[in-house]
Amino acid sequence: MDTLALTRSILKTNLQLDEAAHFDRDVALLGALPEFNSLTITSILATIEDETGCEIHDDEISADIFESVGTLVDFIDEKLA
């Protein structure tokens, strides 16, 4: 699974949004989707850790990661590198 597909799958599960399966990189997330809140951010981070086996440190958590689908893809790619 490529990172964009993984990101779509993580968003679909955690936001309970079927349309997330077709999100492009430029879809805005934080501040744009009502489903995006502190709880969904937390569950998205936990799912990234579960799915990739990486560990995300608290000081890495910032609004920039969740700006758009593209920024989230880039963050996951960085964690996988």
């Binding site: 934080l30 502190s38 709880l39 951010i41 937390t42 981070l45 608290d58 958590i61 609004a63 969740f66």
Partner: peptide, 17 residues
């Protein structure tokens, strides 16, 4: 996870972390 949720709330509100 709960600690993170508190940190994420700061991120979401754009307030101090």
């Amino acid at each position: 996870q709960l600690v993170r949720q508190r940190i994420a709330a700061g991120v979401e509100r754009g307030s101090g972390q």
